[in-house]
Each structure stands twice: as structure tokens, then as C-alpha cells.
């Protein structure tokens, strides 16, 4: 009975992970194939080639797209951490009239789908003259209800007595925020940072809307460009570019995972 269950569990898991991994692994393999291999429908490259990667960087400004993406994703991540942590701090530690009501209003914005706000957001950004500019790509994403919610939960783990003790000894709000609240909330901050970075890195529709200039465009648009330009003949090049675009997110996940585990352990001991 036990063995049957074991086989069923792991068999199921293996099938699911195979299904999940296949597109990624196949993309990686395709990026090393030449056209003949791809059109023959091979699963394994006959000869391992790097030419697709060279072509990808040559045919499109993939390098500058990658740098743009890195910059935009970093700025969004940092901005989000600052705005969310300050807002969450206020919702947890400061007392002001209607505090909880404001918080729920803030959370309620999560119910509004992103698609519904795209047009008004675009108009605002256009009015501000932020199109084709990093401002338009980053600032609209700084405020985020989910981030505030996540960090509020994190800050609530901090015993309120710590805040009271700080008030009694004359430690001001900002000092408490920087020296006590933030260091004690590493787990939540790292989680939000990883989530935000991935979110920003994979953005497609918004950068497409607010940019038309290659100098500020991000890598996801670059991929799409390659695909349309090279339709029907150079799938290997497209796949090579996709693999390159995927790498930073994978690295971040591995590094972040380790950090997250550390953070969780610390929380357990306190």
C-alpha cells in the first residue's frame, strides 16, 4: 500500500514537472541547433552551435535591451520597497483617524484589474510627458497594494512594545523604521524584492505602450521584435535571445531562495 502511494505521488510529480520543464529545456536545446535541425523536428542538436547567440546580439540591440530591463526592474523594485515599507509602517505603528479604513481602501485597489487601469494610466503618463522615458516605465509601479499588505503583515510580527520602548527612549519614527523595523523584516523585504523584480522584468504590455524608442525599450519587447522579424526561418536565434532574457530571473530566484530560507530561519528563532 505504502509503495503504491509512493509511486503514485512521485509518478504524478514527475509527469507534472516534465510537462512544466519541457518548453524551457526545449528552448534551451533549440538555441544550440541550426535551422536544419529545427525544421527536421529534432529534440537533440546534431552539432552544438553558438552561432544563434552571436546572431541574436547582432540582429537586435539585445545588449542595450537587457541593460534597460535591468535598470527598469531595479528601479521599480527599489521604489516599491521604499513606498510599500513606509506605507506599511504607517499602517502598523502610527495612530491616525481612519487608519484601518484607509488600509482596506488601499487593499481594495487589488480588486481592480490591471487592464482596467491601463488606459487612464497611459493618458496620465502621456500628459506628464513621460513616454519614451524611464519615468514612465518605472514610477507608475512604485505604489502597490500587495506590497503594502505583505510588509504590513511582516511589521505586525514586531512586538508593539519595541515601538513603545523606542518612543520612551526618544527614538524617533524614522530612526525606528531604519534601525529596527527594516532589519527585523528582511524576510518580507526580500520576498517583495524578488517578486517585484520578476514582475517588472517580465512586463510586456506597458513598455510596449509607453515606448517607441529602442533606446529605452526592454528585453521582452526585443524578443517579440526578433520573433516578428525572423519568423519562419530563425527560431534558433529567437530561442537564444529568450534563454538570455531568462537567465537573470533564474539567478535571482536561486540567490533569493537562499536569502528567503535564511530569513525564515531567523524569524523562527526570535
Amino acid at each position: 500500500m505504502k509503495t503504491v502511494r509512493f509511486v503514485a505521488y512521485y509518478g504524478g510529480l514527475c509527469i507534472c514537472s516534465a510537462l512544466l520543464l519541457f518548453p524551457m529545456v526545449y528552448a534551451l536545446l533549440m538555441s544550440f541547433m541550426d535551422k536544419a535541425d529545427i525544421f527536421a523536428g529534432r529534440l537533440w542538436p546534431e552539432r552544438w552551435e553558438w552561432t544563434n547567440y552571436q546572431a541574436a546580439f547582432k540582429q537586435a540591440p539585445l545588449g542595450s535591451y537587457l541593460l534597460n530591463s535591468l535598470f527598469v526592474a531595479s528601479v521599480i523594485t527599489i521604489g516599491r520597497l521604499i513606498v510599500s515599507s513606509l506605507a506599511a509602517f504607517a499602517f502598523v505603528f502610527l495612530r491616525f483617524p481612519g487608519r484601518d479604513a484607509w488600509f482596506y481602501i488601499c487593499i481594495a485597489t487589488m480588486l481592480v484589474p490591471w487592464e482596467a487601469t491601463v488606459i487612464p494610466n497611459f493618458l496620465t503618463v502621456q500628459q506628464l510627458g513621460w513616454t519614451n522615458h524611464y519615468f514612465g516605465l518605472t514610477i507608475p509601479f512604485w505604489a502597490m497594494a500587495f506590497g503594502i499588505f505583505l510588509l504590513r503583515q511582516q511589521f505586525r510580527q514586531i512586538p508593539y512594545e519595541l515601538y513603545e520602548a523606542a518612543r520612551l527612549s526618544g527614538i524617533g519614527n524614522f530612526r525606528f523604521f531604519c534601525h529596527i523595523a527594516l532589519p527585523l523584516s528582511k524576510t518580507g523585504l526580500v520576498t517583495l524584492a524578488v517578486y517585484s523584480f520578476l514582475d517588472a522584468w517580465n512586463m510586456y504590455l506597458w513598455p510596449l505602450l509607453v515606448t517607441s524608442d529602442d533606446r529605452v525599450r526592454t528585453v521582452q519587447i526585443g524578443l517579440k521584435q526578433l520573433q516578428t522579424q525572423e519568423m519562419a526561418n530563425s527560431w534558433g536565434v529567437v530561442m537564444a535571445a529568450a534563454v538570455v532574457a531568462m537567465l537573470p530571473t533564474l539567478v535571482l530566484l536561486f540567490v533569493g531562495q537562499k536569502q528567503l530560507r535564511k530569513g525564515l530561519m531567523q524569524g523562527a528563532i526570535q
Partner: peptide, 11 residues
């Protein structure tokens, strides 16, 4: 003030 749970900063 000395609190019941001491309110020490754990980090």
C-alpha cells in the same frame, strides 16, 4: 520602562 517581555531589539 522595563516591559514584561523585556522589549529587547532581537537583532
Amino acid at each position: 520602562m522595563v516591559f514584561q517581555n523585556y522589549a529587547l531589539y532581537p537583532h
